[in-house]
């Protein structure tokens, strides 16, 4: 009855000046599970919550290492992210072959930005339904870039995208000042805590559903999953859980008396 006439393709503006296909694609990003990225003066960290379609299935990959110096975290359609990441891998390799240098993060981000934008401008094409956080270290230091289906790219100090990511962003905004001078370990803790903020009540970060990636000046991009994240999870949440328990016990005593 009130069918939207302006969302059939990505080349038609609505009378309000909107392109609905692009906005729908941005909704796809919000359906994906949360990913968080932070940079300090020396490191760039990505943390992600992995989802499994069902109890018996494996978990969807959320962080893709691209080159020795950087990688990305995705929220949205994983298959679109794979297309983009394959393109990024090719471009990164081309840079190493023709110039013998690791590609600049600003460069590669601009390239996928351009690619995504042309998809919003050609009839018969659709925007990519995925948001990316691209993090790593290049000749000009650590960087974090956010990529959106519209082709918009921005450099960020910290960023969270995906389902319920507002909670993560609130956490990040609260601790914004401390990121720049954070150590590697502190940065990892912040990233994991930000992800935890976005979790629904019945969920918890475990070795199965947590992905973490770190890169730093003179430290290649490395993805930590499974057993390798156990240590990070323990050191990050140990103190908080103790605190929570202590508080709970205290409250219990008060109720008793």
């Amino acid at each position: 009855m009130f069918r939207n006439n302006y969302d059939n393709d990505s080349v038609t503006f609505s009378p309000q000046g909107r392109i609905f296909q692009v906005e729908y694609a941005q909704e796809a990003v919000k359906q994906g599970s949360v990913v968080v990225g932070i940079v300090s003066k020396t490191h760039a960290v990505l943390a992600a919550l992995k989802r499994n379609a069902e109890e018996l299935s494996s978990y969807q990959q959320k962080i893709i290492p691209i080159d020795a110096h950087y990688g990305l975290a995705l929220a949205g359609l994983a298959s679109d992210a794979r297309v983009l990441s394959n393109f990024m891998k090719q471009q990164s390799l081309a840079s190493r072959l023709t110039y013998d240098r690791p590609i600049a993060l600003a460069d590669i981000t601009a390239r996928i930005g351009d690619r995504a934008q042309t998809n919003t401008q050609q009839y018969g094409k659709r925007p990519y339904g995925v948001g990316l956080l691209i993090a790593g270290v290049d000749a000009r230091g650590p960087h974090l870039f956010e990529f959106q289906p519209s082709g918009v790219t921005q450099e960020m100090v910290a960023c969270g995208i995906g389902a319920r990511s507002q909670m993560a962003r609130t956490y990040l905004e609260r601790h914004l000042e401390s990121f720049e001078s954070s150590s590697r370990d502190e940065l990892i803790k912040h990233a994991l805590r930000a992800v935890k903020e976005s979790l629904s009540q019945d969920k918890e970060l475990t070795l199965d559903n947590t992905s973490l990636a770190v890169s730093g000046v003179d430290e290649p991009f490395k993805l930590y999953e499974g057993e390798e994240v156990v240590n990070f999870l323990e050191t990050t949440f140990e103190r908080r859980e103790e605190g929570d328990e202590g508080q709970a016990a205290g409250e219990g005593m008060e109720v008793d008396s």
Binding site: Y99, D100, R101, A104, A106, D107, A110, D138, A139, R140, G141
Partner: peptide
């Protein structure tokens, strides 16, 4: 065009003779 700023930080990212 892609990363041209005239400061010390950008000089580090300039294409080197090796590149």
């Amino acid at each position: 065009y892609s990363h041209g700023h005239d400061d010390a930080e950008s000089d580090k990212a300039l294409m080197s003779a090796k590149n």
